[in-house]
Design a protein around this nucleic acid. Structure first.
Length: 888
DNA sequence: GAGCACTGC
């Protein structure tokens, strides 16, 4: 800690002369001039993109929604059965140790600091997490697998322990319904199990307080009366009928009035209420789009923004992209005529840079606010601020039930407007004792449901690809052994990295008499909605990314889910009919061990880019920015410190001309700096390609289990002596020379989907380079120049080989290792630049390249002092290290 | 000698 204080002092010492003051003034002037030029550009830019590129946008949207690249099918990784479990086990142990160490570090390093309430809570949360995980392990060691059983016949219902809340429940109808459900469930035990039957009990908890489905008014009569309607007329009528049948419809007039009366309104509504599609239309009909103003609505996901916009355009009988449009990254499907605009939250966040007061909007709706993405969290603070000086701007914050009160308080006690949803009740079952091994428990549960419960598809939530594949294997094996005793069971995996055509299989209708089991990651919690799911199995775990601002290291840990998340999962069973959710943990765990809500993203990630953006929007004191839940102070300090070191801020904390340019790029500040520095080194084409390749996280090289040797050989052909950055450049350039061929990717074990994405990112970056007035020039042969522009951004990420033969990061003195996938894995250059640090089995540097220490002085003279970069290992390297050092 | 939950600009 004292180290960082020294650092700060040093910055100040180096910049307090008169000439520095003048330079500062000049820089600020330049910055403002640049900002003005950008404004001018934006004003001149015609917004009528649709007219020119409507067809293209349509095609692209269709393509994106459609399944991508057929030949990815061939690249599907073969099932990785062996040693997967072992690997998982090993990693879990490591993660546990890491968490433990983290807590110890915390307590040691910050022992004497006065903790804020939040910091104290965070520490407490970590401790509880560790305790939980350890207990989970203990239960496993016991190997006494106790499983819950399916509901038996009604006569035996006294066998089930009723939970207190059930008794408190006022509606006896619920109870009655429940009994009926129990009666309909038939459970038959195997002969062997029958003896044990009495040992088991099912813990039956209360029903989630879901709102009973509203009845759809029958539209059939009316149709019969008017058989002479044309197809399109009937379609129109159907749309009107559907609109009227939505739960939000009866609230139309009250809602419009409430928006008129209040500037900020919190909309509390379950999914399926129709709020996302209807509210913007109501407000449009009520005249909120007069005077050329727009209604905006943000969504956390691209697909949602696109599909909702398409739906609303259809309902309003207009062409998508005209009156109703959407804007997402790489695609702007709006025009000057657009009055209802759907967009992703990140897009609106970016839009703030060119329109900081949202002047063109009369209403802004922030939908799905309870998901608490980084972008919505920042938008909260921004729109709250704007609302103060734009009294005619209406804000609607729409959220699921639990958070509404919190949002209301944040927005100065804004009124809450409640809209019922349309969802069927879901019975929740808990296990009596903690499950020892939840993958096994999932398999057993699936089979029990399949054997005893009425038909209906099953959704199982697991943490990742590995687990899903293990579970799939186990299930297939068991089903095969049971042979024809059971009905057909179709087992389908789904996770984000699965090729889209494989993903699409989960949407195929289940054949009559069969049952579908979908093994999914969190992707099925919000992003994908699968129809006909009646049963949900929830082990209660998920993977979560954590950023440690002290070490700058990221790690992915399996953690218990939150109550909100568990309820969201359960809700997936009640979309088409009453459902059942089997939780593989106890009611006690649910009540006492699960957090109410998932830790918001803003508290878990590196904030470099977010901080730069806010600064570019003129928010000067970020420590006082109005966050709904503020990020950890340390993360904030690290971000500010890095931005200062990069030259985005001057010593007074003001945004510099460089910083203003950096903010234009939707990338990490270090990468933005690298891109801007490429101008000086005349290699902007190369820098942009490298940046694009780095932006698709590590999913470039394809390495199927059965073709490891081929894949590795193919990969080595791309290796560049200069390091992994240049290897990536090689891959991109060769792909480009192949005319972006899919066949080329297949032959070279490269993932086509990732390359396509890199190309999209690259195109966008090139556009932005032109926007910040940088010429695109290519200079592939000048490798040192390319490296120098990378160093200009990433000088913070440097490690040096120590005497002991291991690497230490220069600033944090953290022990790190070259990742085995690196081209330099067997090489041990004295100075290394790494792209990122990730903790998996060890502390790894991913994507590294060799550098010369004198380049560091050139790139960041304010940051490194010559003394710091003296080689303490000037003599020969220890023999054990082997060949080394081509440095300096 | 390796492991990528999920979004998004």
């Amino acid at each position: 800690m004292s180290k960082s204080r020294d650092k700060k002092k040093r910055y100040e010492d180096s910049s307090d002369s008169d000439s520095a003051e003048e330079a500062r003034k000049k820089d600020l002037k330049e910055r403002d001039e640049f900002a003005n030029r950008l404004k001018q550009k934006d004003a001149n830019r015609t917004r009528n993109i649709v007219a020119a590129s409507e067809k293209k946008a349509y095609e692209e949207a269709a393509k994106r929604l459609k399944i991508e690249a057929e030949d990815r099918d061939k690249m599907v990784p073969m099932l990785r059965i062996h040693s997967r479990r072992k690997y998982l086990e090993k990693r879990k142990d490591d993660k546990l140790q890491e968490l433990e160490a983290d807590i110890q570090d915390d307590e040691f390093l910050f022992e004497n600091d006065i903790l804020t309430e939040r910091e104290r809570k965070e520490r407490q949360h970590k401790k509880e997490l560790l305790k939980l995980a350890q207990e989970h392990e203990k239960a496993r060691e016991l190997e006494r697998v106790q499983r819950y059983h399916m509901p038996s016949d009604a006569g035996k219902s006294s066998e089930y322990v009723e939970v207190d809340e059930l008794e408190n429940m006022p509606q006896s109808e619920q109870k009655k319904w429940e009994k009926e459900q129990m009666a309909s469930a038939v459970y038959s035990f195997g002969a062997k199990e029958k003896a044990k039957r009495d040992e088991y009990e099912l813990l039956l908890a209360n029903q989630i307080d879901f709102i009973q489905a509203l009845k759809l008014p029958g539209s059939k009569d009316k149709e019969d009366k008017k058989p002479e309607l044309t197809e399109s007329e009937r379609k129109k009528l159907d749309i009107q009928e559907t609109k009227k049948s939505l739960p939000v419809f009866p609230f139309r007039d009250d809602l419009i009035q409430a928006v008129r009366d209040h500037q900020v309104l919190i909309i509390e509504g379950e999914t399926g209420s129709g709020k996302t599609t209807q509210i913007p239309q109501y407000l449009h009909e009520a005249g909120f789009t007069d005077d050329n103003k727009k209604i905006g609505c943000t969504q956390p996901r691209r697909v949602a923004a696109m599909s909702v916009a398409a739906r609303v355009a259809q309902e309003m009988n207009v062409k998508l992209g005209n009156e109703v449009g959407y804007a997402i990254r790489f695609e702007d499907c709006t025009s000057e005529r657009t009055i209802i605009k759907y967009m992703t939250d990140g897009t609106l966040h970016r839009e703030f840079l060119s329109e900081p007061d949202l002047q063109s909007y009369s209403v802004m709706i922030i939908d799905e606010a309870h998901e608490r993405t980084l972008h919505t969290d920042i938008l909260f603070g921004l729109v709250k601020d704007i609302a103060r000086f734009r009294p005619n701007l209406k804000l609607l914050i729409s959220s699921a039930t639990l958070d509404a009160q919190k949002f209301s308080e944040f927005f100065d006690d804004a009124p809450i407007f409640r809209i019922p949803g349309r969802r069927f009740p879901v019975d929740i079952y808990y296990t009596k004792a903690p499950e020892a091994n939840y993958v096994d428990a999932c398999v057993v549960s699936v089979l029990q449901i399949h054997a005893t419960q009425p038909l209906g598809d099953i959704l199982v939530f697991l943490t990742g690809q590995e687990e899903i594949e293990t579970c799939q294997e186990l299930l297939q094996d068991r089903v095969r052994r049971l042979g024809s005793k059971l009905k057909e069971l179709i087992i389908l995996p789904v996770y984000a990295n699965l090729p889209s055509d494989m993903q699409a299989k989960i949407f195929d209708p289940t054949p009559p008499g069969a049952r579908k089991v979908v093994l999914a990651t969190n992707i099925a919690e919000t992003s994908l909605t699968i129809d006909n799911i009646i049963y949900v199995i929830d082990p209660g775990f998920a993977k979560q990314n954590h950023f440690n601002s002290r070490t700058g290291m990221e790690s992915l840990i399996v953690v218990p889910v939150s109550k909100a998340s568990a309820n969201q999962r359960a809700g997936r069973a009640g979309r088409v009919a009453p459902g059942k959710c089997f939780r593989l943990y106890t009611l006690w765990s649910y009540k006492h061990e699960l957090e109410d809500n998932t830790v918001p993203e803003i508290q878990r990630i590196n904030l470099g880019n977010a901080v730069l953006m806010l600064k570019a929007l003129g928010i000067n004191n970020l420590m006082k920015f109005d966050f709904l839940d503020p990020p950890p102070r340390e993360t904030m300090v690290l971000a500010l410190e890095q931005l200062y070191a990069l030259g985005a801020f001057n010593h007074r904390g003001e945004l510099t001309a460089l910083g203003r340019r950096m903010a234009e790029f939707p990338v990490d500040p270090m990468m933005a700096k690298m891109l801007l520095a490429s101008d000086k080194y005349k290699c902007s084409e190369e820098a942009v390609s490298i940046a694009a390749m780095l932006s698709v996280n590590g999913a470039i090289f394809y390495r199927p289990k059965d073709k490891i040797i081929h894949a590795d050989t193919a990969r080595k052909n791309f290796n560049h002596v200069g390091g992994d950055h240049l290897t990536l450049l090689n891959v991109y350039n060769q792909w480009r020379d192949s005319d972006y061929s899919t066949q080329w990717c297949y032959e070279n074990f490269i993932q086509y989907r990732s390359m396509k994405r890199a190309r999209d990112v690259r195109e966008q970056l090139v556009g932005l380079m032109q926007r910040v007035e940088i010429e695109m020039v290519s200079n592939v042969s000048e490798v040192d120049n390319i490296k120098k522009s990378i160093i200009s951004g990433y000088f913070y990420h440097v490690a040096r080989l120590s005497k002991s033969g291991s690497y230490k990061t220069v600033k944090q003195n953290q022990s790190v290792t070259i990742h085995p996938s690196s081209a330099l894995f067997e090489d041990l250059p004295r100075w290394l630049l790494y792209h990122d640090l990730v903790y998996t089995t060890k502390e790894y540097m991913r994507v590294v390249m060799e550098i010369q220490s004198k380049w560091l002085l050139e790139a960041a003279p304010h940051y490194y002092k010559p003394k710091e970069l003296e080689d303490s290992t000037n003599k020969k390297m220890p023999k054990t290290v082997g060949r080394s050092t081509r440095t300096d």
